[in-house]
Amino acid sequence: MPSHDPRIDAYIERAAPFARDLLRHWRATVHAHCPDVVETIKWGFPNFVYRDKILSGMAAFKAHCSIGFWHGAAALGEGKGKDGAMGDYGRLTALKDLPPESEQKAAILRAMTLIEDGVKARPAKKSAPKPPPEAPADLIGALDRNAAARQTFDGFPPGQRRDYIDWIVEAKKPETRERRIAQAVEWLAEGKRRNWKYENC
Rank of each mutant, 00 (worst) to 15 (best):
L22W: 00
H33K: 04
H71V: 09
P35W: 04
S3T: 11
C34K: 01
V38C: 09
K96M: 12
N195L: 11
S102E: 14
P123G: 06
L22D: 04
D138T: 08
F18E: 04
T113C: 12
A184N: 03
V169M: 01
I12A: 10
A28S: 12
E134L: 10
A73K: 12
R91T: 11
K192F: 06
S56L: 02
S66V: 08
R24I: 08
E39H: 05
D138C: 02
C65D: 02
A111N: 11
W70N: 01
F18V: 07
A73T: 10
I165C: 14
D88H: 10
G87K: 06
L109Q: 04
P131T: 04
N47C: 12
K192M: 02
W196V: 13
A148T: 15
G44Q: 08
L143D: 00
V185H: 04
I168E: 11
D163P: 01
K62P: 07
D36K: 07
A63G: 12
T93A: 13
R14D: 08
A124D: 07
E175D: 13
I168N: 09
N200G: 15
H25A: 13
F18G: 01
D117L: 12
T29Y: 00
W187S: 00
I140A: 13
A128N: 08
W187A: 02
D21W: 06
R122P: 00
P131E: 03
G44H: 07
N195Y: 14
W187C: 03
I8K: 05
N195R: 15
A107R: 02
I181W: 01
A124K: 15
E186L: 08
V185I: 11
R145L: 15
P174K: 03
W43Q: 01
K126C: 10
A137P: 03
R162T: 12
G155T: 15
K62H: 06
D166S: 11
D144W: 14
A10F: 05
L188Y: 02
H71T: 13
S102V: 14
A19Y: 02
A59L: 03
K82F: 06
T152C: 03
T40M: 13
K192G: 01
N47T: 12
R161W: 09
D154A: 13
R161L: 11
V37Q: 00
A184I: 07
R194P: 03
E101C: 00
D83W: 14
R194Q: 14
E101R: 01
A60Y: 09
L23E: 00
R193P: 00
P99D: 05
G155M: 15
T176V: 13
E116A: 11
S102W: 06
Q160W: 10
H4A: 13
A189R: 06
R27S: 10
K192R: 15
R27Q: 12
L109A: 05
P174D: 04
A182D: 10
Y164K: 09
H64Q: 01
Y50V: 06
T29E: 00
S127R: 14
E78S: 13
S66I: 04
